[in-house]
Design a protein around this nucleic acid. Structure first.
Length: 589
RNA sequence: GGUCCCGUGGAGCAGUUCGGAGUGCUCGCCGCCCUGUCAAGGCGGAGGUCGCGGGUUCAAAUCCCGUCGGGACCGCCA
């Protein structure tokens, strides 16, 4: 007869309650904390459901237990003696009186504390190197579970809307987004390379041509660019595309998903509809295309006010200002600090005027201003006595963005931001094109983005002003989604290609397959992609998306756990065909 | 490509301004004691290339140069 299948447990530690008193249970889990009194040993046993206190009587094995041993315990669930309840624990009314203890596996001494004092202060490098231990901890584990719930809610909402979940290739060819591709050598065709998708953009458009009408995918995307707290080289989007819809139809679906997430995951009912703001207004009022509207301190345009000024610095295409409440009280060192802060952003500096208690203006800039300029300045920018006014002068967009960054910094330093607030908005009507270095134009979003309906006929006449039917979703200053209405008419597509200087051969070689597909009755379509890592980070309060990714990479591109990337041996290199010469000459685009 | 911050027993820090013996704190680890703790407690103990290399100096964790690693930001990035 074969031995029976092992039975490791018949109850979960964190689920035991007072009603279970008297039950004989078998638990399996880890020794989270240990309190050894000699004749009596308490351990807090942890499994995925939570913790329960196990009481062990003196015997040799109990004394040998150490942190994070994996153990199996059999015993009776008992009400704790009066006065010994622990309200900190969900299972604090009861304990398990063990009469059988089995060590399933031992643990070496831990590289950092998992439980108790210091567990929340471990450096990220150590945590990531032993991420499997980091994830035993309550907080990081809860974040991954939250992410799973986010996936579930997203799928559920889209399913209710009749969407079809479809997987697209990860080994593909370069897509026309602007980032650097990760490339993969192809053994069967030496000298030829796959690219990892920066997004499933072209495939989802092909699925619209295919008549799927409503597609979505929780899609991994790859971009070989430098890291940030909110950027990893591989990241996840909830990717959505719809046929026979306009912009507002897409925004409504995105809103449905986000509202459901905040409701189901955070217990927050977001007000609907989400606010909408044109890109131009966001830039003008907040100096950003992803404004944090949890606080005011909006920018003031002072260009006209200083149009006659004799102060050289303010003789610029654009002069703007932002007010720092109470900023006049800053020390010289703090004010100098702002200069360094501005220079780090590529500016010459950040001019400032201090409003004294009596309303008189101080600071190095004030003496360069005429009396008439001084008189109305505080009122113009909305400054009160005791405030500091920061100025940026120069090219309009650059000045606005510098002030926008200053505004955000002011919000942080002056504690103007309500950290419990959720402020979502759609930024719409992005510029369709941006100028290139050699005097041409390039698509701001991607070359399949349609102009807004009122620019349809004239975008190529005034490309600098043309608006695209593209949109971003912004939450508390984080860009958490973006998309556009796509071009489905070949003549319109031709005009856009002409404007960005893409001739027929180039278009054909880069994405001829998409243009071919569009010859067969492509439906009008539009889509959006939500930044899944950022959304989970916001919902979980994480400062970095590394916290919401099971095994993230560090800024140099490595994974401290696996040690990837690694060199490869010559045989593997040869087999991969990395060094094969292409049979057609190629030039840089 | 650039700017800034950090690197000190296993973890987290202090010490670095203004050079003077590896000094200190909390935790962990090891041993002993301990029957109601829950960040258990008591006593004792081990554990260090102050990231690495060079320079200045009678003397460097501390000052200078370089380099490596981590982080934040600019550039870059649907």
């Amino acid at each position: 007869m074969r031995p029976a299948q092992p039975q490791y447990r018949n109850a979960r530690a964190g689920e035991l309650r007072i009603d279970d008193a008297g039950r004989r249970v078998t638990l399996a889990g880890w020794v989270a904390r240990r309190r050894d009194h000699g004749g009596m040993i308490f351990i807090d046993l942890r499994d995925a459901s939570g913790y329960v206190q196990v009481v062990l009587r003196e015997d040799d094995m109990a004394h040998t237990l150490r942190s994070e041993f994996c153990v199996q315990v059999t015993g009776e669930v008992s009400r704790r003696p009066a006065g010994n309840e622990n309200p900190e624990l969900a299972t604090g009314e009861i304990e398990v009186i063990a009469n059988q203890l089995r060590v399933l596996s031992e643990s070496a001494t831990l590289p950092f504390p998992i439980e108790g004092q210091g567990a929340n202060e471990v450096g990220e490098e150590a945590r990531l190197k032993h991420r499997y231990l980091d994830l035993r901890r309550t907080g990081p584990a809860a974040t991954l579970r939250m992410r799973s719930q986010v996936n579930k809610v997203g799928r559920s909402v889209l399913d209710q809307h009749g969407f079809v979940e479809i997987e697209t290739p990860n080994l593909t060819r370069s897509t026309p987004e602007g980032a650097r591709d990760f490339i993969v050598p192809v053994r069967l065709q030496p000298g030829h390379w796959y690219a990892l998708p920066q997004s499933p953009q072209l495939f989802k458009q092909l699925l619209m041509v295919a008549g799927m009408e409503r597609y979505y995918q929780i899609a991994r995307c790859f971009r070989d660019e430098d890291f940030r707290a909110d950027r990893q080289p591989e990241f996840t989007q909830l990717d959505v595309e719809m046929s026979f819809v306009n912009r507002d139809d897409v925004l409504a679906v995105a809103e449905d998903v986000v509202v459901a997430l905040w409701r189901e995951v955070a217990g927050v009912e977001l007000p609907r509809p989400f606010e909408r703001m044109s890109h131009a207004e966001a830039l003008r009022r907040f100096g950003s295309d992803k404004p944090d509207i949890r606080f005011g301190q909006e920018l003031t345009d002072c260009t006209a006010y200083f149009s006659e000024t004799s102060f050289r610095v303010f003789q610029a295409p654009h002069v703007g200002a932002v007010v720092m409440p109470g900023g006049a009280g800053q020390s010289r060192a703090e004010l100098d600090g702002w200069q360094g802060w501005a220079r780090a952003r590529g500016a010459k500096g950040l001019a400032y005027v201090l409003v004294g208690p009596d309303g008189d203006l101080g600071g190095p800039v004030a003496k360069n201003l005429s009396d008439t300029e001084k008189v109305g300045l505080a009122e113009l920018v909305g400054a009160e006595p005791g405030d500091a006014i920061f100025f940026a002068a120069g090219p309009r967009r650059h000045s606005l963005e510098l002030l926008g960054a200053a505004r955000q910094e002011i919000g942080r330093r002056c504690d103007l931001i309500d950290n419990s607030a959720w402020r979502l908005l759609f930024v719409v009507d992005f510029p369709m094109f941006t100028p290139t270095e050699n005097g041409g134009w390039t698509a701001e979003h991607h070359p399949f983005t349609a102009p807004t309906p009122d620019w349809m006929d004239r975008f190529d006449a005034e490309p600098e002003y043309a608006l695209a039917d593209a949109y971003d979703l912004v939450c508390n200053g984080w860009e958490i989604g973006g998309g556009s209405v796509r071009i489905h008419q070949s003549d319109l597509q031709r005009r856009v290609f002409d404007l960005i200087g893409l001739d027929k051969d180039e278009a054909e070689s880069q994405f001829g397959f998409l243009l071919d597909a569009f010859a067969y009755g492509p439906p009008p379509h539009a889509g959006v992609a939500l930044g899944w890592d950022r959304i989970v980070a916001l919902l979980s309060g994480a400062e970095s998306i590394r916290e919401v990714i099971a095994f993230p990479k560090v800024a140099s591109g490595g994974d401290p756990l696996t040690g990837a990337p690694t060199p490869i041996p010559p045989a593997q290199r040869k087999e991969a065909g990395i060094d094969a010469r292409p049979d057609v000459p190629l030039r840089d685009r």
